[in-house]
């Protein structure tokens, strides 16, 4: 689905402030996968995702998305951007229309869809991200931060992309808003069969959602593996300014102190289940 071969990106090439953001990376992401992308600040995460929909052109190397090679003349970038939806950091600052509905419709109308279909899509995605119908006629600037964020995500979703990339979609949101947005993303991933790449600084969120985790460090791919395999390397993760989920730390600590727990617990739900088993308690649904 997405394939990077020996891709590099250098900012301000030749100038006094030259900086290599990506250093000869190669990787492959398959259709329908949920990828968690983690890395310390400045590790090249944002640069990487901006390349995937052609906002940045690689300094060297080739990127293939859905069989199309980026940078070739025959590849229509606009078309590509409809297929690879990108929600940038703090996306609420890109809202501009008079009403929420019009703002969500901006992407689809750029696609040249008929009016009825646009209206249909707007209603559908608004419902999906949890915006009530009466909000649609309001000005986006009158909404709360969390609602604005949802409008912005809906604006990208309305294009029905095959790949959805989210750059820290929960930064600056309260815990309730964060969980809700992540739940919606997971939901959409399953319902629309989208490939999702989620950039996050929260190991907990990534552990809960991702199939595979891509770890970036200083412009290089440090790891790209199943969630369990990545979090088993806690020491290495700490070395590069990352961490393992807090619940994993707690569980590891308990095990070291002789509590009979299995390895590889990355979410609160798993931990709860294990502890219930251990103490012979009846499981009650949480969350």
């Amino acid at each position: 689905m997405i394939k990077l071969e020996d891709v590099s990106y250098v900012y301000m090439q030749g100038g006094p402030f030259e900086k290599t953001a990506l250093d000869h990376i190669s990787l492959e992401i398959h259709k329908g996968e949920f990828i968690g992308l983690i890395g310390h600040t400045g590790s090249g995460k944002s640069t990487l995702i901006q390349m995937l929909n052609g906002l940045l052109k690689p300094t060297s190397g080739t990127i293939t998305v859905n069989g199309k090679v980026l940078g070739e003349k025959s590849t229509n970038l606009q078309q590509l951007r409809f297929e690879v939806g990108l929600v940038m950091q703090y996306p609420e600052y890109q809202l501009f229309e008079e009403t929420v509905a019009k703002d969500i419709a901006y992407g689809p109308s750029n696609m040249g869809l008929p009016k009825e279909e646009i209206a249909e899509r707007v209603a559908y995605v608004a419902n999906m991200v949890g915006l009530s119908p009466e909000l649609l006629e309001k000005s986006p600037f009158d909404l709360s931060g969390g609602q604005k964020r949802r409008v912005a995500i809906a604006g990208v979703l309305a294009m029905e992309p095959k790949v959805l990339i989210l750059d820290e979609p929960t930064a600056g949101l309260d815990p309730a808003g964060r969980d809700e947005i992540l739940c919606k993303i997971k939901d959409m991933h399953e319902r629309m069969d989208m490939t999702v790449i989620l950039v996050s600084h929260s190991m907990e969120d990534v552990a809960k959602l991702a199939d595979r985790i891509l770890v970036m460090n200083h412009g290089k791919v440090e790891m790209l593996d199943k969630t369990a395999a990545v979090f088993r390397q806690g020491k290495r993760l700490t070395e590069i300014g990352l961490n393992i989920p807090q619940i994993t730390q707690v569980m590891d600590g308990l095990r070291e102190n002789g509590v009979n727990l299995g390895e590889g617990i990355y979410t609160v739900e798993d931990a709860y289940r294990q502890l219930c088993d251990l103490m012979n308690l009846k499981e009650q649904p949480i969350c």
């Binding site: 901006q50 906002l55 939806g85 940038m88 890109q94 901006y106 750029n110 696609m111």
Partner: peptide, 13 residues
């Protein structure tokens, strides 16, 4: 730059 990118991502031309 950021806003231009965000709007390009939504197909702005």
């Amino acid at each position: 730059d950021k806003i231009m990118k965000a709007q390009s991502a939504r197909g702005a031309d």
